[in-house]
């Protein structure tokens, strides 16, 4: 019998756990070497803060507010990027009109946008606006690339068989666009979280994760700071999982059509 070249699942899991344990230990040793909690909290102190924050109602309000705003920005970007990319794939004028905006959004630093946005809009929806500005070019570019990469031979088939626009969308465009849209949306959602929370830290809207991070920073409370960071990572992972599940459901629904 040929020896198996793939590593068993339990071994992969064990290696992963060992790696996490190694870095936690490194962190603990560094914290002990620094010797000041306000400079670098230990993993245990962060865990205690994490659990304590979970018992506070104000934490849930912050989760809700920030998640809502980031998701509003992200989904607005998703819808608008889909619409404009569809338009740009058919109209040179729309393509040329949107291109400079996309290039601008890609190159201008987030901080510049945030400061400009603080002047122009209320800080309450600042993170939504920044999440939108950051997510839009990523999704737009990916969708447009997907639309331009459509199988021309299959589009000729659609033309010869006089396929209706709806059926063309369901059987040709969406299946071919799926991987471009998914990869763009997943990247954009991660960036939305990063930029949205960064905007909140600068704008300090009341009852947001950004406000909590800012408060932890001014009080030199690194345990809270890292605990809030862990919450952001978890929320980002959770929304990412939900988004992927939604896309997966959408793909299954398409194959049943």
């Amino acid at each position: 019998m040929m020896p198996s070249t793939t590593r068993p699942e339990w071994k992969k899991g064990a290696y992963r756990l060992l790696a996490v344990a190694f870095w936690l230990l490194a962190w603990q040793l560094t914290a002990m070497a620094v010797g000041h909690e306000f400079l670098l909290a230990s993993p245990l102190q962060v865990f205690i803060s994490f659990v304590r924050l979970l018992t506070l109602p104000s934490s849930y309000l912050a989760f809700l507010n920030s998640t809502l705003r980031v998701l509003v920005g992200f989904f607005t970007a998703l819808c608008l990027a889909l619409l404009l990319a569809a338009g740009a794939s058919r109209s040179r004028l729309i393509h040329e009109l949107v291109s400079p905006l996309v290039a601008l959004a890609r190159s201008v630093p987030v901080t510049s946008f945030v400061i400009l946005a603080i002047i122009l809009v209320s800080t309450r929806w600042l993170s939504a606006l920044i999440a939108f500005v950051i997510a839009f070019p990523v999704i737009y570019s990916n969708v447009l690339e997907g639309l331009f990469a459509q199988d021309k031979a299959l589009l000729e088939v659609a033309a010869v068989f006089r396929v209706t626009p709806f059926r063309k969308l369901i059987y040709i465009t969406l299946p071919q666009l799926y991987s471009y849209l998914l990869s763009g949306a997943v990247t954009a959602l991660g960036l939305s979280w990063k930029s949205g929370i960064a905007a909140e830290v600068i704008g300090i809207p009341r009852g947001s994760i950004g406000e909590k991070l800012y408060s932890a920073k001014v009080n030199y409370n690194t345990a809270d700071l890292l605990a809030w960071t862990a919450f952001i990572v978890l929320l980002s992972l959770l929304t990412n999982k939900i988004l992927k599940a939604l896309f997966s459901r959408g793909r299954e629904a398409l194959t049943r059509l």
Binding site: E156, V157, A158, V160, R167, K168, Y171, I172, P175, T255
Partner: peptide, 22 residues
């Protein structure tokens, strides 16, 4: 109606869905 030199099918779709397309 036509059969092209290449198959030109929607590869991820079923045979039935390829017919549903038209």
């Amino acid at each position: 109606s036509a059969v092209f030199q290449e198959d030109r099918l929607a590869e991820s779709a079923s045979a039935l869905s390829n017919l549903r397309l038209v």
